[in-house]
Amino acid sequence: MEMIDLPHGTVSYRAAGPEDAASPPVVFVHGFLVDGSLWSGVADLLAAKGVRSYAPDWPLGSHRVALPGAADQSPRGVARQILAFLEALDLTDVTLVGNDTGGALCQYVLDTDPSRVGRLVLTNCDAFDTFPPFPFNVIFRLLKGPRRLLFNLQPMKLRAFRHSVLGFGLLARKFDPAQSRSWIEPSLTDAGVRSDAARFLQAVDPSELNDVSTRLAGFRGPVRLVWGTADRAFKPALGRRLAAAFGDAEFVEVPEARTFVSLDAPQALADQIADIANATSSPKEPT
């Protein structure tokens, strides 16, 4: 793990692949209550193809270093944190890859400043006013507040609960128990991390993401949606609607995969990312 100090706080990240890669860099954006390890299998496969990737732990409840209390934890604020990461590492023509809540954050990035983004890959994720979908909209309401978050995470200490439909069970077919436990540990043990996570949930506004969707067609780079068709939360119909919002996005179905396509079908996702990585792009300048 490497660490970098940014204006909003410290970010840990995993880097994989050759530093002198000819392909544009890949930057991953995970969702709520998971960390950058979600992408490890895909990152290793990309590294074998000669692609350099970065998988930061964004401040969404599974990060290890709490942010200062003044950090903007709204979705727009986290998008600016992603942009600060790209700027700090001087990453340009980036292939931005998002999943779950991270897919919504990628949309905010494009709406805020797409100048460092060359192309976009989204797997199953929030879109329009589905932010988040059922049943996670109900679950997230139970977590809105540091005390509520701590109380409602207690059952997640049990592997059986953690991997059930009340935990992560809807999101993938199979989990590594040690990995899923590591996702909840920071919010269980660090009050600052719990505060970061709760402040993010309190700032989520489906109507704002719905407004962002009206401007997605302005992004000039290639867009590909790699969608698990077995997802019972982010259903394929939502993915096809999101693809249409970009105007010229490709929609690729991944049979049998659920929300975490990176866990259920890492080879299929890595192949799609590598394929689009060298596609011609023409990023927009900020307006």
Rank of each mutant, 00 (worst) to 15 (best):
Q202E: 15
L209C: 04
L60Q: 02
Q107F: 12
L89C: 03
A79H: 09
D205M: 00
A277R: 01
D93F: 02
V193Y: 04
G98L: 09
R173A: 09
T112V: 11
V27P: 07
L89Q: 06
P133I: 11
D205P: 01
R173D: 14
R116Y: 08
R194Y: 05
G145D: 06
M3Q: 15
G17F: 02
E253D: 15
R148I: 01
D176M: 02
F131A: 10
F151H: 13
N278W: 04
K235D: 04
W58H: 09
Q73C: 14
Q202V: 00
F134Q: 12
G102C: 14
L269E: 03
N152Y: 08
G61L: 01
G98M: 08
L150F: 12
Q81F: 11
A43D: 14
G169I: 08
Q81L: 12
A197P: 05
L150A: 14
E253Y: 05
E285W: 03
I82S: 03
P7E: 12
G36R: 01
A47G: 13
R199T: 04
R232I: 10
E285P: 02
L86D: 04
N210K: 14
F32W: 12
R159N: 12
A178Q: 10
R147A: 15
G118T: 08
D90L: 10
G69M: 00
A104L: 09
L209A: 06
Q73E: 11
T92K: 11
A217W: 12
N152S: 07
F168V: 03
F251R: 00
A191W: 01
A198K: 04
P132V: 05
F200H: 06
P255E: 14
F85W: 10
E253H: 03
G36H: 01
T280L: 07
V97D: 06
S213A: 15
V27L: 15
P75L: 04
P222K: 00
L153G: 02
T130M: 06
V138A: 12
K144M: 15
I82Q: 08
S180D: 13
R181L: 09
A15S: 10
V78W: 01
R159I: 13
S164G: 11
L33M: 15
G31D: 06
A178K: 09
P56A: 05
W58R: 00
A233Y: 04
I273C: 10
I82Y: 01
Q154L: 14
M1K: 10
R181E: 12
R240L: 13
S37Y: 03
L67F: 14
D72N: 13
N210G: 15
Y13D: 06
G221Q: 02
V78T: 05
C125L: 07
L209G: 00
K174A: 13
P155C: 11
V117S: 06
E256C: 12
